[in-house]
Design a protein around this nucleic acid. Structure first.
Lengths: 117, 117
DNA sequence: CGCGGTTATGCATGCTTCGACATATCGCAG
DNA sequence: CTGCGATATGTCGAAGCATGCATAACCGCG
């Protein structure tokens, strides 16, 4: 038995929609924040523009909130950045995720590590 | 924005294998423990026998440990139950998962709840 | 007004996963 | 030695999801 690593995937869901918001969208929003465009963000995360775009739509639709502010055409062809609301979500989710990840590390050491000697 | 629910998926991985052990296998082992057979366990979890069997093989292979003790033929056609090692894993993983789930609830209340008003 | 670079969107193809089937094997009971 | 019921495995097809391609629409700039 070799060294194991604990991993997790988090997401939020409503009654009717499953993947409302989660790790993927969180990463995507962060990337948009630093990159300034959806295209650049998707490239950075190695996912297709097609998927990134679709995911965002789904998230905004499900949360019923504008997370990003998009504009096409113009100086550099277009741009995308986060709304105030979007930034709030990124911040909140970052803390949320951090807390859980820490708890996971601790729980791993406490319960699993010895077994996987 | 309606009431959200935080959800998570946990698993352990090694350098080469991804889904070594996780929620699915954990549930499966628990079911085997109470049901006494792989067939009954898979039915209880609403997954195909084919998948259950394949998953177990993968887990034992990756962990390089016998988790279950299987026997075919015989009185009732066969049976399956957990090895000592398997029981240990179930117990440990249960605690592991509980800890994290609690942390998740707490973190949700702390960071997300207000946003998803 | 045409160019460039981005957002916007449908569609067809491909890949991965899972389930449904189809057998084969095993060992006790009668 | 035959039947029953569970384990053991390969295989083919359906479903879900992501990628890639093809096209539009948009708009500041030279």
């Amino acid at each position: 038995m070799k060294k194991l690593r604990a991993r997790l995937k988090l997401w939020l869901s409503t009654k009717n929609a499953e993947g409302v918001f989660g790790d993927g969208k969180w990463r995507l929003l962060k990337a948009i924040e630093t990159e300034g465009s959806l295209k650049a963000a998707s490239k950075k995360l190695h996912i297709s523009y097609r998927k990134a775009w679709g995911d965002l739509n789904k998230a905004e639709d499900a949360l019923n909130t504008a997370l990003i502010d998009k504009q096409r055409g113009g100086n550099m062809g277009g741009r995308t950045d986060l709304t105030t609301q979007g930034k709030k979500w990124v911040k909140a989710y970052t803390k949320f995720r951090d807390d859980i990840e820490k708890a996971m590390e601790k729980a791993y050491k406490k319960h699993i590590e010895e077994l996987a000697k």
